[in-house]
Design a protein around this nucleic acid. Structure first.
Lengths: 159, 159
DNA sequence: ATCATTTTTCCCAAAATTCCCCAAAATTCC
DNA sequence: GGAATTTTGGGGAATTTTGGGAAAAATGAT
């Protein structure tokens, strides 16, 4: 998806908008046409999908039978807060109130890019989440670190 | 159904009406002509159908064999509380008393809009329902999450 | 390092929408 | 019939959304 990875910080203005980093604007596929979908994450942050990506999810979701209660619950859980947003002429995005409230976004914003999606975090909560993970799940973290980075010939692979 | 997704909050006035978000007004197919049907959901909320969508449901319900007692019950259940409502000149809707009572709607209202359905919730009950689902049906939830969001070769499928 | 360009931030203002309130009309209940 | 309640309509204040100017900061090239 996005070649660019890492985190960006941005500020939320008095109207609840933030400047979408120009580096990312350039990365988003033109098919998305400046349109995105914001959604609740399972963590206390917002997940952001370019529209072309979201359409694939929605397509998959549309096969869910919403007349089965458990499915309907799940559908509601994952789709209920998905909201379309778009870039304005100055590449800003308005964060819908309910989502901003959920993620406790006020003034400062952290934009975290992963290969699969973009997350919007309250910087404090992000920090806290990292801390907590490192403290409580140290074993799990090391295990994962090993899975990703381990394998001896790491420096060789730099060639 | 609707291209617009997301949750909207609205307030119920002293007459039991609420403002239907203008974003949604624009999305409803003109065929519905501002007419809707409200009905009990199987959960403690109200399901809202634009009239053109409701007609499809009614068509299906009409094929039910009402000479079978269980079917007759189901028919009553789904049709019994269906009430037509419409938008007034200021895009407000009156929530029929019995339905408001059923869904425990008083002051605040949450409108949950997905491509598959529109629901009207008491915000507290909605939040509680999500929480409970995440806590009790973690397996079902993860199953579905994986079905929808998982699957590794996601970005390849964008081609 | 300096300058030019791009990007971001911080404002203000116009437009659109929503909310709160009151009042007329219609309906229901004694 | 008359009173009480419910439904409908709308005025106008308050808030939200949208757009854009211009200063400040960051980036890049020479």
């Amino acid at each position: 998806m996005l070649a660019t990875e890492g985190t960006f910080s941005s500020a939320i203005d008095s109207s609840g908008r933030f400047q979408f980093p120009s580096v990312l604007v350039k990365e988003v596929r033109p098919e998305a046409e400046g349109r995105f979908v914001m959604n609740r994450s399972t963590e206390k942050c917002i997940t952001l999908y370019p529209m072309d990506v979201w359409k694939v999810y929605r397509e998959r979701l549309s096969r869910v039978n919403v007349f089965q209660p458990a499915m309907r619950q799940a559908y509601r859980y994952f789709m209920g807060s998905a909201t379309e947003v778009s870039l304005d002429k100055k590449n800003r995005m308005l964060i819908p109130k309910p989502l901003a409230q959920y993620a406790e976004l006020e003034k400062d914003l952290l934009i975290v890019c992963t290969p699969a999606f973009i997350e919007l975090w309250n910087p404090d909560l992000y920090e806290a989440s990292l801390q907590q993970f490192a403290a409580n799940d140290a074993d799990a973290m090391n295990e994962i670190a090993n899975q990703i980075f381990g394998g001896g010939d790491f420096y060789d692979s730099l060639s």
